[in-house]
Design a protein around this nucleic acid. Structure first.
Length: 285
DNA sequence: AGCACA
């Protein structure tokens, strides 16, 4: 009851989040509806370049839910932040995602044989995401919670939250290494056939549906995450900007197009990016 | 749907 006023003071007094700390590869996500599923968070980030793993956390404060998403680099974390921050997550309530750099990175896999970690708040190697439920600890009155009294320090229990797998899990690697490079295997055989519209594959991409206040810097920042990215050029075209991005290789352009298609730039006041192969390759200078 | 630079 009396927590709200404290929260407000806290926020006013807290230092601004440090967006420049290159150590941080983890994003903190709030503004989520309380019925959000870990699978939704995973699907939100799984196409982001450099994405590693995520976790959903029931804070135990009412029905508050937050999430963490960890990337392989600070740069890719920033790119995802910029692309997804402010995106309306639930059209019904209109609540928008609020994303910032986390204060500390999420832990990776538990070291074998190390039992020193007291609770479950570590990534287990069993799946793409993890759920941390603090609700019963703080005696949350909220959503039922079929606890059954298992305070489990057993990581194999972590899939109990949503075993409904309409999620297309492509790579079922067990106890393996990172799960990023395997997933693209099925997508990478389109050297010469067009994948978008009826345009022909080209190592230059055409970007449309940009907001009026989209800047060259913003796009550059996103594109520089992609291997082979060369040059960006923006054109005014009577109001709405469009852009051309040149890559070394067609496959690299294709990869960037597929991963960035429909994503929201922070500057955008409309739908997500629309990307096609350009009709002709950017002339070399 | 909107594709420039030479």
């Amino acid at each position: 009851m009396a927590q709200q006023p404290y929260d407000r003071y806290y926020k006013a007094a807290a230092p601004l989040p440090d967006y420049t700390n290159p150590e941080i590869k983890t994003l903190f996500i709030s503004g989520l509806p309380d019925d959000v599923k870990a699978r939704e968070i995973h699907n939100l980030f799984r196409h982001r370049p450099g994405f590693d793993a995520c976790q959903l956390k029931y804070t135990g404060r009412g029905n508050q839910v937050v999430a963490f998403a960890t990337f392989f680099s600070h740069q890719s974390a920033i790119a995802a932040l910029r692309a997804l921050n402010g995106v309306k997550f639930d059209p019904d309530t209109g609540c928008a995602l609020h994303i910032e750099l986390a204060r500390t990175n999420s832990w990776r896999k538990r070291k074998p044989g190390d039992v020193s970690a007291s609770k479950v708040d570590v990534f287990s190697s069993s799946g793409p995401y993890v759920v941390i439920d603090n609700r019963d600890r703080n005696n949350a009155q909220g959503s039922s919670s079929d606890d059954g009294g298992s305070e489990s320090d057993d990581p194999s229990e972590t899939d109990k939250q949503d075993s409904g797998d309409e999620d297309d899990v492509v790579n079922a690697k067990s106890g393996g290494s990172a799960g990023v490079d395997g997933a693209e295997a099925a997508v990478s055989n389109q050297e010469d056939k067009a994948t978008e519209g009826n345009t022909q594959a080209c190592s230059t991409l055409f970007f449309a549906n940009l907001g009026p206040k989209c800047t060259e810097d913003e796009l550059k920042q996103v594109l520089s995450q992609y291997p082979g990215f060369n040059v960006l050029k923006m054109r005014g075209r009577g109001g709405l900007p469009v852009a051309f991005a040149d890559f070394e290789e067609i496959e690299q352009a294709t990869k960037a197009m597929e991963e960035l298609q429909d994503t929201q730039l922070e500057s955008s006041d409309r739908g997500g990016l629309h990307i096609e192969y350009a009709r002709s390759k950017m002339r070399k200078r």
